[in-house]
Simulated assay, not measured.
Amino acid sequence: MSTATVLARAGRAEWARIWSVRSSWVLVTCLSLFILGIGVLAGLDAANNPASVPPGASAWDGARFTAMFALFGTVALAVMTSTADHATGAIVPTLQWTPRRSVLLAARSGVVALTVTLIGVGLVVGATVALWALAPEVGLPMGDGLRSLGDIVVVIGSGALLGIGLGLATRSTAAALVLSIALLLVLPLLVANLPFDWATTVSSRLPGSSALFLIFGEGPRDDMTVATARLTMAAWAAGATALGGWRLLRSDAGH
């Protein structure tokens, strides 16, 4: 059987595995209600208080706000789906079904990352459209939207791969979630506030700082650029995936 055929079969199995458990549906439903609710509330506020809308603001400014919530929700989903079969012991039949571990790594990383990215971006777009529908005066410029969504795709996609890699490396949902939140939220803020010159440089190299810069345009250093932020996010995603892949390929599934 060719590698392409095995990869396609493993990809279908990973897709089915995501949606065959109730927790995935519950998390996606809660995340949808939360993010779309933020869009509706922001739209109602803008419609009822037009003076509170800054000059030149558009509905895509709301998209950038909801993107942070989408990031953490999709990372949680990525971690949960990448560690679920280790937690239940189902990794054994998973490897019996796909004994080529490199194929399993490619299928799991690709399918899970693509799925959660599409969910996150779709919810951000939905919240943005809801805001605009309730307050059409804020506008929905296409150019601004493409730029915003491009950055959001990088942030959510890289965050998903980071969560998947940490999940495969730790084989623990709790540990991977703690590490993901630390890298994306806690450590960037903590290190940036240390009274040392090197602290801002270290903070700017963490994925959370790059995510904040791509979404809001602000970071711990004034010399941060979109290109460097995207490169930092991609490097952390690749490093975490490599680490998780190394453990999947080299370590016994039961340990």
Rank of each mutant, 00 (worst) to 15 (best):
170 T>Y: 04
168 L>I: 11
179 L>I: 14
191 V>G: 00
176 A>F: 02
175 A>R: 11
188 P>T: 00
187 L>I: 10
190 L>W: 14
188 P>N: 00
189 L>T: 14
171 R>W: 01
199 A>V: 11
182 A>W: 02
179 L>Q: 09
165 G>C: 04
204 S>C: 06
189 L>H: 13
194 L>N: 04
199 A>M: 03
194 L>K: 08
195 P>R: 04
181 I>C: 01
172 S>G: 08
187 L>N: 06
192 A>P: 14
169 A>T: 12
193 N>D: 12
203 S>V: 09
188 P>Q: 02
191 V>R: 05
188 P>Y: 00
184 L>Q: 11
194 L>C: 09
187 L>K: 03
177 L>F: 07
202 V>A: 07
181 I>W: 06
196 F>G: 12
179 L>Y: 05
188 P>A: 01
183 L>E: 03
168 L>W: 08
201 T>Q: 15
198 W>F: 15
166 L>A: 05
187 L>G: 01
187 L>C: 00
185 L>W: 13
173 T>Q: 13
204 S>P: 11
181 I>N: 03
180 S>K: 00
189 L>Y: 12
195 P>I: 02
195 P>F: 02
178 V>W: 00
171 R>Q: 06
198 W>G: 15
181 I>R: 01
166 L>N: 03
195 P>Q: 00
168 L>M: 13
195 P>M: 01
193 N>C: 00
178 V>S: 05
171 R>L: 00
181 I>A: 03
182 A>Y: 10
187 L>Y: 07
175 A>E: 07
202 V>F: 06
203 S>G: 10
180 S>M: 01
170 T>R: 02
199 A>W: 05
201 T>G: 15
186 V>N: 06
202 V>I: 13
174 A>I: 15
191 V>K: 04
175 A>V: 15
199 A>Y: 05
